[in-house]
């Protein structure tokens, strides 16, 4: 076939080498990830729900994160309430038409969110306007806000007043996404560790 350059094994090895530094850096962020897990567990313990959102491949991750909680992979773990705000194309495209693409998530949050809930927004470069607006809306409504970003954090990383901003140190959106998957898998598993040990949760704290 004309126009196709044959890939080599070295291309694959180079791709995996590009992931090493960001993975090592993520390990150094373990305290920040653990603190986010603890705070999410507090919200679940108070009856809150998890609301997730992202664009493109991150919309798939928002659905993945929600199903982790709703249908636990480890038999015997408790199901917890979680919902992707970007999983229903009838709603998302309808809101995009009415409210504009930058405000689809914020509009959904205004309908769904309660102050005890958790909002998790995913954006590989942090420059998704709808994710930024959604997190700002969630923050203003008293939800616990968690942003998963990469690169320099972009517009999402620059938002004041978010509770947890977990940033993967890579400019490559594919590398960022892979480490976001690891972060939210860890988040799901360790939220359960905290919930099974309520003595470890600061339930009387303000947030």
């Amino acid at each position: 076939m004309t126009g196709v350059r044959t890939p080599t094994a070295q291309d694959a090895l180079d791709a995996v080498a590009r992931r090493r530094a960001a993975t090592t850096a993520l390990s150094r962020d373990a305290e920040r990830i653990a603190a986010a897990c603890r705070d999410v567990a507090v919200r679940f313990a108070r009856g809150g729900r998890l609301l997730t959102f992202g664009n493109g491949p991150a919309a798939a991750d928002a659905a993945h994160l929600a199903v982790e909680f709703v249908h636990p992979v480890i038999v015997g773990k408790r199901a917890l309430p979680a919902l992707s705000l970007v999983a229903d194309p009838a709603v998302v495209t309808g809101l995009a038409r009415r409210a504009g693409t930058a405000d689809t998530v914020a509009a959904s949050l205004r309908a769904h969110a309660r102050p005890e809930d958790v909002a998790i927004g995913l954006s590989a470069d942090g420059d998704c306007a709808d994710v930024a607006h959604g997190l700002a809306e969630a923050r203003d409504r008293g939800l616990l806000t968690v942003a998963l970003v990469g690169g320099d954090g972009g517009a999402v990383g620059a938002l004041p007043g978010l509770d947890h901003v977990l940033r993967v140190c890579s400019p490559d959106p594919a590398v960022v996404r892979e480490l976001h998957v690891t972060i939210y898998h860890v988040l799901w598993e360790l939220v359960h560790v905290f919930l099974e040990h309520p003595g470890a949760l600061p339930l009387a704290a303000a947030r």
Binding site: S27, A30, E31, I33, C37, T182, V186, L190, V193
Partner: peptide
């Protein structure tokens, strides 16, 4: 939990 996170990474 911090130690567990590092192990998983």
């Amino acid at each position: 939990v911090v130690a567990s996170t590092r192990e998983k990474v």
